[in-house]
């Protein structure tokens, strides 16, 4: 059976998805990155390898997310794609006529507009992380509510309070203030959901024509409180796909299919790569006043790749995670 692997390594979570020839999800893994992308990828590979059905083999690998180049080198990716394209491709798979994708991840939020299956516009948050998963996590912990129950609690609110949502720090102080004056926790949480959605609409959603069907994905889509707040703000039905939290990885897997179709073979290094000793490092090149930060990655002491220089001086090993690069492991 031909299988395709997608890996999305973001700031907060690392996700892996395996799909078959019918684009059905066979297995997935959702792990915390915890600032160590290589280890997260290796753990994820180990775990997902156990779930591969008999006779299945990986015929293509795609990576996405902020650590996509690094991960691409480690696993031998056939395609390395930005997360906007990956999310759009995945949303189109689950809802072919999708026109709007709302994505709220660990530390970023995006909006992607599609018309007739083609991405026509997108935006990512630039100013503030309020409204993203990390902030919600933090607030849930502060209020002593498990994040899983956060959304359900918000739905119980009868009169949400108004929370200043422009900035995560101010939102927090405003919430504390509302607690001190005696508002109900569920009203505060519901108010926070409204504030986050308002912030999102003013920030990434500004000037965008939001048409149905709307797909809501990313880790925050688990939060039914946010979903309800979006529905209220947009006056539209919001669709949360079954694999909402690993859509980036799903997109990367789909993209690897078309990459391999063109390349004919995969560059995947195999699951044994999860036992290898990869080391990353960086140094500042002092060759000129540009002071580039050069990233190096090595395997058992041998340099695999190096990138980050403006002039190309350090790139004799290929400037970036070139998927075609052959390395003996």
């Amino acid at each position: 059976m031909d299988l395709y692997l997608g890996i999305d390594v973001g700031s907060v979570s690392t996700n892996l998805v395996i799909i078959d020839e019918k684009n059905e999800v066979i297995a997935y893994e959702y792990l915390r990155t915890r600032g160590q992308p290589i280890r997260a990828v290796q753990e994820g590979l180990k775990a997902i390898a156990q779930k591969i059905p008999q006779g299945g083999s990986i015929c293509g690998v795609g990576t996405t997310g902020s650590a996509r180049y690094l991960t691409g080198v480690i696993v031998g990716a056939d395609t390395v794609k930005n997360e906007i394209t990956a999310h759009a491709v995945a949303a189109r798979l689950v809802k072919p006529d999708v026109q709007t994708v709302l994505e709220l991840g660990g530390q970023d939020s995006k909006i992607i507009l599609l018309r007739h299956g083609v991405v026509t516009d997108f935006a990512m948050n630039t100013i503030c992380a309020a409204g993203t998963g990390s902030f919600l996590d933090h607030q849930a912990a502060r209020l002593g509510i498990p994040i899983e129950e956060f959304g359900a609690l918000a739905l119980r609110s009868r009169s949400p309070v108004h929370i200043a949502g422009r900035c995560s720090v101010f939102a927090e102080s405003d919430m504390i203030h509302k607690q001190q004056v005696g508002h109900l926790t569920e009203d505060i949480i519901a108010g926070l959901c409204d504030a986050l959605v308002r912030n999102y609409m003013n920030n990434v959603g500004k000037g965008k024509e939001i048409l149905p069907p709307v797909v809501f994905q990313g880790g925050v889509a688990a939060n039914i409180g946010i979903k309800a707040a979006f529905e209220k703000a947009l006056q539209l039905e919001i669709f949360v796909p079954p694999y909402y939290h690993v859509m980036g990885a799903l997109g990367a897997a789909l993209l690897s299919r078309s990459a391999v179709k063109k390349k004919k073979t995969t560059s995947f290094r195999g699951f044994s790569t999860s036992n290898l000793d990869y080391k990353t490092g960086s140094f500042e090149c002092k060759g000129c006043p540009n002071i580039c930060e050069i990233i190096t990655i090595s395997l058992h002491g041998e340099l695999l790749a190096r990138w980050g220089s403006r002039c190309g001086k350090w790139d004799n090993l290929e400037s970036s995670a070139s998927p075609a690069q052959e390395v003996n492991v």
Binding site: S66, K81, N82, G117, D121, M124
Partner: peptide, 21 residues
Amino acid sequence: PTGIQTRLEAFVDLLEQRRLA
């Protein structure tokens, strides 16, 4: 620079898709 690079990559993908379509 990473944020800029991601947006540029996504924008080029968008334009390529448009051309194909």
